[in-house]
Design a protein around this nucleic acid. Structure first.
Length: 461
RNA sequence: GGUCGGAUGGCCGAGAGGCGAGGCUCAGGACUGCAAAUCCUGCUACACGGGUUCAAAUCCCGUUCCGACCUCCA
């Protein structure tokens, strides 16, 4: 089975056929950097990171572009509110996003273009759109896209222009039609601006993505992704701009669903506690990633702290298996992709089915430990590692290595001393003494387990 | 009003006409000096009402409830 993906544009799952054999271009709508990232933002990052890793693992040369929109209304408002320059706001939150991506092992994009770095491309695009008669500059410094001049509009969200609710108070009379949207906004006093043939101003919301996608992926590219709520208006407007300019634009549109709370799209009231840097205080980054990636990307993920904790426990079970197995094998088998895992991933990234495969494999591996069947065990470890790697959750990925392990040898020596005492006590059937030693060590956060190979210790998580 | 999605066991979460997804929790068992870990067994659910079918959680019709978008949205 080859990779099949759901395409929002066609509303069905179909075989993925790259424009060029062996290559894939992906454009993911990244952050508008006006607030710290919450898990909804980062779920999108994780979902598309899994797609990217899967494409890479199956032999594609992936060009992954994830933009940063570093100029928009909210950023300007925030700058006033926080009493710092708008560009300082953008940088501050861009850094917060970068930290969050890193904490969750989201691979850095091939390139991460910023809107403000592509004003030239935006102006060129607007010139083209005006030449082709699809955009107009009414003279006040704004530039609008004339949506009724397009032969098709709203094809992605399957709406009709006249069915849209009218946009509140239509004060701006510069628009030919209330549905027309701003490609470019005339400068207001105090706002940042860039010079254009139509006067100084700044980009509207949608223009940057069309300009940057074209700049890095060409006029036609394979996959465009983002959150479900970007379908309209953002992606519709991108399509409108790009197709009006004569570009083929994206072949496949993919949208991840939300993280919800109490059945609703994540509310602002919970927003703070669901910020990535808050949740990584509660669970490790790898565990948060496991949780966010565990539901199918097109399904709503109903967030709760209980579910998060449970998910982390389930992950630790897999991690503990790897620890035991690698200890027993005396080596770390490299990851491989098993067909059971591949079949799941090829089916529109059916991660839940892939997790079932991992569970089965861990069970087989644990049985292999009992049976001392090293070949089977080695295979199980390889398959689990290979699977976890695609999900970005291989505990042995260098991304998750922490410097604390440098003390391991010293700790191991100290605990070994205590364990020798305990073994001596056990040998003379003085279980009160042996249990006391175990309890004292446990009180320090270190778990002792007796195995057929002797006692082993782990730091309780 | 328009467009789109959802309702699955104690909980999370897949599936989309027939073969008990999987995980977590819980109960019992094996192993163990005891733990822990692991394994085995058990808990057979699909909002409601009709219909189609040999067979429906899945398809059709209707109903209820919940949610999203409609120019700030991951």
């Amino acid at each position: 089975m080859t990779l099949h993906l759901y395409n929002t544009a066609t509303r069905n799952i179909s075989e993925f056929k790259p424009l060029q054999p062996g290559k894939v271009g992906i454009y993911l709508c990244g952050a508008t950097v006006q607030a710290p990232p919450h898990i909804g933002h980062i779920r999108s990052g994780v979902n598309f990171d899994i797609l990217r890793r899967w494409l890479m693992a199956t032999g594609f040369d992936v060009t992954f572009i994830r933009n940063v929109t570093d100029i928009d209304d909210k950023i300007l408002h925030k700058a006033v509110h926080e009493e710092i320059p708008w560009w300082a706001v953008a940088m501050k939150y861009e850094r917060a996003f970068t930290d969050a991506y890193k904490a969750l092992n989201v691979l850095p994009p091939t390139y991460e273009p910023r809107a403000t770095g592509h004003i030239t491309q935006m102006i060129e695009l607007m010139k083209t759109l005006i030449e082709k008669g699809h955009a107009y500059a009414p003279g006040n410094g704004d530039v609008y896209l004339e949506v009724r001049s397009l032969k098709s509009y709203l094809t992605l969200s399957n709406q009709k222009i006249d069915d849209l609710q009218s946009a509140g108070d239509s004060e701006d009379t510069f628009k030919k039609d209330p549905r027309d949207f701003a490609l470019w906004k005339a400068a207001k006093p105090g706002d940042p601006s860039w010079p254009t043939p139509w006067g100084p101003g700044r980009p509207g919301w949608h223009l940057e993505c069309s300009a940057m996608a074209q700049a890095y992926l060409g006029e036609t590219f394979d996959i465009h992704g983002g959150g479900l709520d970007l379908i309209f208006p953002h992606h519709e407007n991108e399509i409108a701009q790009s197709e009006a300019a004569g570009y083929g634009f994206a072949k496949v549109w993919m949208h991840n669903a939300w993280v919800t709370t109490a059945g609703e799209k994540m509310s602002k009231s919970l927003g703070n506690s669901l910020q990535v840097h808050e949740l990584t205080k509660r669970v490790r980054g790898i565990e948060l990633r496991w949780y966010l990636g565990s539901a199918h990307y097109r399904s709503m993920l109903e967030f709760s702290f209980e579910a998060l904790e449970e998910s982390a426990v389930a992950f630790r079970r897999i991690e503990a298996f790897l620890d035991r197995a690698i200890e027993l094998l005396g080596k770390t088998p490299e990851g491989i992709i098993a067909s059971g895992f591949a079949d799941a991933m090829n089916d529109d990234l059916a991660v839940p089915a892939a997790l079932a495969f991992i569970s089965e494999t861990v069970k087989n591996g644990n049985n292999a430990i009992s049976a001392q069947d090293m070949n089977s065990l080695s295979l199980a470890v390889s398959q689990v590692r290979g699977s976890l790697n695609i999900l970005g959750c291989d505990p042995r990925d260098e991304a998750f290595s922490n410097s604390a392990t440098s003390n391991t040898d010293a700790i191991d020596g100290l605990i070994s001393l205590a364990l020798q005492q305990r073994e001596a006590a056990r040998a003379r059937k003085d279980f009160a003494a042996s249990d006391a030693i175990r309890d004292q060590i446990a009180a320090l956060g270190i778990v002792i387990e007796d195995t057929p190979q002797g006692p082993r210790w782990t730091v309780s998580k």
